[in-house]
């Protein structure tokens, strides 16, 4: 894989960052402090500090039940924390409803893909476009008011669909797509919102190996286009390949942070994945 300028830039920005949980970043786009979520007696998430470097691809990894998705839900307003503060681009998001979070430029996808299956692929895409005049009931009744904007949105959607190789499916119902194509559609639809930060919850889950590579390429392209990416993933190989920085969660807390190569060596990460008292490196056998 050729390393692009943006990748070098992203990795260079993280060189001086300490490889420890909660490490401060030189230019954080997202900062979370003291975010806690309890379900009854169980503390699902307890993140004392988390910073996300702008323009990077950051992976959030951890074993099942580590609280990754819950943390995602909290940051994006889909769940409310018991306590905690977080800012996106300097704006406080705590207590903000999910739809407003999305409007600030922080858009997420879901672990279980939410393609709107009884709408066409194109309708799915158009739904993502922000600030539509025709989304007001009264203005919607008069096509002249919104048709121009609709046309522009449609062109942008067609371009994205071509890019994600879904253009041939534009008029098909989203329910007829394969699992991998739905993941692609969900990503393309999120891009219609014109986000600055894209948060992908297990984008590779249930996708065949061939499509995984193309998904990885798409994730890289998000960074090339100047966006920041935070994604949840299980598969270590995927993480190593694409991410500039890795954050490891276990039992609700961030237990390690660092570059992909180094974080895999850390005892806390090995403990989290394999249980304590293991001396095996997770990186062994990868041929690196």
């Amino acid at each position: 894989m050729s390393s692009s300028e943006k990748q070098q830039e992203a990795r260079a920005s993280l060189v001086a960052v300490a490889q420890e949980p909660g490490a401060p970043k030189p230019d954080p786009i997202l900062v979370a402090v003291g975010v806690q979520r309890q379900f009854g007696g169980l503390t699902a998430v307890d993140v004392s500090r988390f910073e996300l470097q702008r323009g990077t691809i950051t992976a959030l990894i951890g074993p099942n039940g580590a609280g990754k998705t819950t943390f995602f839900n909290l940051l994006t307003g889909f769940d409310k924390p018991n306590e905690g503060e977080w800012t996106f681009d300097g704006r406080s998001l705590a207590g903000m409803p999910a739809y407003k979070v999305a409007r600030t430029g922080m858009v997420r996808t879901f672990q279980l893909t939410k393609a709107l299956s009884k709408m066409t692929v194109m309708q799915n895409m158009l739904l993502g476009a922000p600030n539509q005049k025709g989304e007001n009931f009264f203005r919607g009744l008069i096509p002249g008011i919104w048709s121009g904007q609709e046309k522009a949105n449609r062109e942008r959607a067609e371009e994205l669909l071509r890019h994600f190789k879904l253009d041939a499916k534009a008029d098909d119902f989203a329910g007829s797509l394969s699992g991998g194509q739905r993941k692609l559609l969900e990503m393309a639809r999120a891009l219609m919102v014109q986000p600055e930060l894209v948060m992908l919850d297990e984008p590779m889950a249930g996708v065949n190996p061939a499509l995984k590579q193309s998904l990885l390429d798409h994730i890289r392209e998000l960074r090339e286009a100047g966006m920041t990416v935070l994604f949840v993933e299980h598969d270590m190989d995927m993480v190593r390949d694409v991410s500039d920085w890795v954050v490891v969660m276990a039992q609700g807390e961030i237990v390690a942070e660092g570059t992909p190569r180094e974080v895999m060596q850390q005892q806390a990460v090995i403990d989290a994945y394999l249980g304590e008292h293991h001396s095996v490196s997770l990186d062994s056998g990868s041929g690196s």
Partner: peptide, 29 residues
Amino acid sequence: FLAMRSPWGRVLKGIREDEEAVRSLGKNV
């Protein structure tokens, strides 16, 4: 007819399919 072919109607149909997805796209469900 006019309302449902407009972007307003599209949001409603999206809500019928999955309101979380619509919310994640910045619409006040």
